Simulated assay, not measured.
Amino acid sequence: MTTQPPAHSLFPPSFHRDGIARRTLLAAAVAGAVAPALTWAQGSDKPLRMVLPVSAGSGVDGVARVLGPSLGKALARPVVVENYPGAGGITGTSMIVKAPKDGSVLGMVSNNHVVNPSVFKNIPYDAVDDITPITMIGATPFVLVAHPSVAARNLRELIALAKAQPGALNYGSSGNGTILHLAAEMFVHEAQVDIKHIPYRGMGPLTADVLGGQIQMAFIAIAVAAPHVKAGALRAIGLSSSVRSPLLPDLPTMAEQGLSHYVLDGWVAVVGPAGLPKAEVERAYHGVRSAVATPEVRDALLAQGYQLQSPPPDATAAFFRSEIGRMARLVKQSGLKLD
């Protein structure tokens, strides 16, 4: 059942089959080679507001605060990070959507942006048409971890255990409809196993309870999982991305272990309000590319398990549309009811 994992990309296999990612990323590479990141001598004393639809201390918040100083230098203006959590990201994203269309406000979103249209009945914006995608920052894998009391040391053994005891095992998630919930449901669907879902309120309490053995397994971010795995407090079963991670180099991917179609990363992207002038889009895009390329930002994000990519705005928009469709299918498979 073992298959060769595909080359790493933020984009899912179906997106690559369409050829869109290959063409647009090639265009980005050419543009980067012939036109290095722009400089903005004119600058601005007015801060760039980076609106985050998540709380301080979250993974996306950490990326924004790592990126902010270097982005400010690239754009020759200060960057102020503002957190507006609530309603699964809808509160903060609504502020991005309503922001002035002059480049003074950008936002940073994650998987929830493309999950929410399939989870909430009434969202006051369109997840693609009401924003201007700028670029992706990168993607980081999730790790399927199990408490050491679970009698399985790899994915094959876990699937065999689950099939031998239908409904007896459980997994936790960071909440109904979150990407960690869908990561687990994707596993359940592809492995054709029956495992009970126990939702939590965030990754913190989820991680605490899988460490304590109150739940048996969960998908959690690799930066959170790796220290516990190395200490022996958790057992790593499989990696969600298409290639292995330097943070846990000996851990095989889910695809390597037989679930050949399983690829799901946690990603972060920069967006602006719809109608952002082309010049401002280009300014922001090259600014982010320049900032991510600095050693301090690159090294900090790599240390968190991120694979870095900066596709151009049109590729980012196409990725959003593709992911909205993919997440809709996952939500339907999970049986999750719309709120």
Rank of each mutant, 00 (worst) to 15 (best):
G202D: 05
P205K: 11
P205D: 06
T207M: 12
T207N: 10
A208T: 15
A208N: 15
D209L: 13
L211Y: 11
L211W: 11
Q214P: 00
Q214D: 14
I215N: 07
I215A: 04
I215P: 05
Q216Y: 12
M217I: 11
A218I: 09
F219G: 03
F219E: 02
A221T: 12
I222W: 10
A223D: 15
V224N: 12
H228P: 09
H228I: 12
V229S: 08
G232P: 03
A233E: 14
A233F: 08
R235C: 04
R235Q: 15
A236Q: 04
L239S: 02
L239W: 07
S240T: 14
S241H: 14
S242D: 08
S242F: 02
V243I: 10
R244C: 11
S245A: 09
S245Q: 03
P246K: 08
P246I: 04
L247K: 01
P249Q: 06
L251K: 05
L251I: 13
P252W: 10
T253D: 02
M254A: 10
E256K: 02
G258P: 02
L259Q: 04
H261Q: 15
Y262W: 13
V263Y: 12
G266R: 01
G266K: 00
G266N: 09
W267D: 01
V268G: 00
A269Y: 00
V270S: 00
V270D: 00
V271D: 00
V271S: 00
V271T: 00
V271C: 00
G272C: 05
P273L: 05
P273D: 04
A274S: 14
A274N: 09
